[in-house]
């Protein structure tokens, strides 16, 4: 094909104007772009969290298999500071990841608002009538949070609304598969007017919640 022929073809190609109809309305197009961007962001975050979780499991495997103090002693001599293990997990995963200890197991979840700092520490304990600890949950939160948990050990949701530094309302709808200590189902709403509150449940068990503003 000669150069003049190519020039002629290019001119002919330039004259072909496809119809400018049949497109999405602009607002819908931008809304679709926003959704696409959000989906991609969520996907990337999930990949990152999954990779980090796998890494943490590998790194902490020797520690997890060693004999160590029970959940009861892992705890809350001072509820304004996170436990060592929660602080270590926060350092490792960074502030954007949601971290929850169910007894000795760490769960990583997607935080509702990853941009806000986790200023509050929450510990939830379920105690049998004799004071024996059946389960313990420990996590940090921005204060207002809606946490959805979907794991074989625990599923359900934790809904937390706080009105000022100390007052908060906690709604729990959780099902825990508690190996060896029986499954636990919680469907409770608690008003937290102090650092901690205890609620007697209908089956004789008790729910104890610590809700503290952390001291940085």
């Amino acid at each position: 094909m000669t150069t003049p022929k190519i020039d002629a073809l290019l001119e002919a190609r330039a004259r072909i104007t496809p119809p400018a109809t049949g497109y999405q309305p602009t607002r819908e197009f931008i809304a679709a772009f926003r959704q696409l961007r959000q989906r991609r962001r969520t996907l990337l975050r999930r990949y990152w969290v999954a990779a980090a979780a796998a890494l943490l499991i590998l790194l902490t495997w020797p520690w997890r298999t060693q004999e160590r103090p029970s959940a009861a002693s892992a705890g809350r001599s001072d509820c304004t500071a996170p436990s060592e293990r929660l602080a270590a997990a926060e350092r490792h995963f960074g502030p954007a990841a949601g971290l929850l200890f169910v007894n000795d197991d760490l769960l990583v979840f997607e935080r509702q608002d990853a941009d806000r700092a986790n200023h509050y520490l929450v510990t939830i304990e379920i105690l049998a009538s004799g004071g024996v600890k059946l389960a313990r949950l420990e996590f940090a939160t921005a204060g207002d949070d809606y946490i959805v948990l979907e794991d074989e050990r625990i599923n359900g949701r934790i809904f937390l609304v706080h009105s000022d530094n100390q007052n908060a309302v906690l709604e729990l709808s959780l099902h825990l598969r508690n190996a060896g200590r029986g499954n636990i189902h919680l469907d409770e709403i608690m008003a937290l007017e102090q650092r901690n509150a205890t609620l007697a449940l209908s089956d004789g068990t008790r729910l104890r919640v610590d809700f503290c503003r952390r001291e940085s």
């Binding site: 072909i16 104007t17 496809p18 119809p19 400018a20 109809t21 049949g22 497109y23 999405q24 197009f29 679709a32 772009f33 696409l36 961007r37 991609r40």
Partner: peptide, 24 residues
Amino acid sequence: FRSLSRRILNNPVEVDDAVQSALL
């Protein structure tokens, strides 16, 4: 963007998909 893409792809649905993908 659409006018640049439609000279290549011709089909409005494909054009919108290409522009979305490029924007992302």
